[in-house]
Amino acid sequence: MTTLLFALIALGSLALIFGLALGYASIRFKVDEDPIVEQIDQILPQTQCGQCGYPGCKPYAKAIADGDEINKCPPGGDATIKKLADLLGREAKPLNDAHDGPDIKRVAFIREDECIGCTKCIQACPVDAIVGATRQMHTVIADECTGCDLCVAPCPVDCIDMLPVQPTIQTWQWQMQSIPVKVVDAND
């Protein structure tokens, strides 16, 4: 009987001590914001395009942290999904919507002679990358454009194109395309 009592007391006090320690730790080492959200946000491409169904990348990051699917980000593509899968220990899935076309970087371009200066695209742009004023021609700051597509639909006169970014000598990368092709010389 006393053995049982001792056991109970011992276990009970242990539980109490650990409980107190844990309780203290939870207050003392409290993290302000769930850092996982920050980490996810770091991985997302920050185009703020809303194609995931959330109004921006941070909200989607929060949604992912709360258990939403990781495959809703078309601009990030498979690379982002893979990184998210690595971070969260979930399985990498293919992109949820049938996102056609290759993953090329695009940037918005306003055909300026057709622009009527309606400012709709300015309001739609999540990163303020379009400058212009009412009834003045608008233009895109190409360096700031994330290629999110959001300005294309609101344009009443369809004067915004998404143009693929052309490589320049400065941005060109050694391509793997140059896999050796054996060309048989006509001379031999």
Partner: peptide, 8 residues
């Protein structure tokens, strides 16, 4: 003829 990349 494609020599791929240096060194040749």
């Amino acid at each position: 003829m494609n020599l791929l990349s240096s060194p040749f």
